[in-house]
Write a protein that binds this DNA or RNA. Structure first.
Lengths: 111, 111
DNA sequence: ATCATTTATCGTATATTTGCGATATAAGAT
DNA sequence: ATCTTATATCGCAAATATACGATAAATGAT
């Protein structure tokens, strides 16, 4: 690749793409579901629910955290993750508005 | 990586992840915008609008097509792409329902 | 102080993605 | 028939993602 071209797109396009990338693995979607199912965010049992090694799950959690979709407090031998609903809402509405913007321009199917 | 683990998640999780992956690059989001702006799907000028080489744009188009987000008819020296609104709507609503499902379970912020 | 438990990080292997130039392909124009 | 134009595909290089085992770190229990 040599050079990154991603910076040459708009910030909004990059943000949406990053959000999408965070969702672009079934394991991470599964993790989000698990997090949502627990009202308490004692999330130690995530590893047991996924067909992945502990280190791999930890990596996915890190990516979700970097994307801002979850927040977590590490508390010694047990960590506590939960969904960052604010960020989630924000991205969801941005996604919807992207769809809406796309849709309004194009009424007739042409292919 | 050695082994693919993606197959071990639910079909729905995989589908959503694949959709997200298709959107996970700013170039592809930009392409979708361009496609939507044209009511006619004479889409030859996409290359000129992006900071990427022709072959790279062609690759991104291919990925969007594989993901089912666009459809295209190749017509000799010029090809004609446009957004596949059906697929788009489907994924959008699946995404929304995922969000809704996640949201309803979790009322209180815990982190 | 040592041990057990839990999670993060490191190192590493492999797969996939991104990007480009070169080339092939396909059709219209001359 | 040849040239031009537009697009797809091939081949390659570099970057990133995925996955795991081993190890570190941090805390509670003994």
């Amino acid at each position: 690749m040599a050079v990154h071209k991603k910076e040459e797109f708009t910030r909004k396009e990059q943000d949406l793409a990053n959000f999408a990338k965070a969702m672009a693995h079934p394991a991470r979607i599964a993790i989000l579901k698990v997090l949502a199912l627990r009202n308490e965010c004692i999330c130690g049992e995530i590893v047991g629910l996924l067909p992945l090694a502990q280190s791999t799950v930890s990596q996915h959690l890190k990516e979700l955290k970097n994307a801002g979709l979850i927040s977590g407090s590490i508390d010694g031998p047990r960590s506590c993750y939960c969904i960052n609903w604010n960020a989630f809402e924000k991205f969801n509405s941005e996604f919807n508005s992207l769809f809406a913007n796309l849709k309004v321009k194009n009424e007739k199917a042409c292919c």
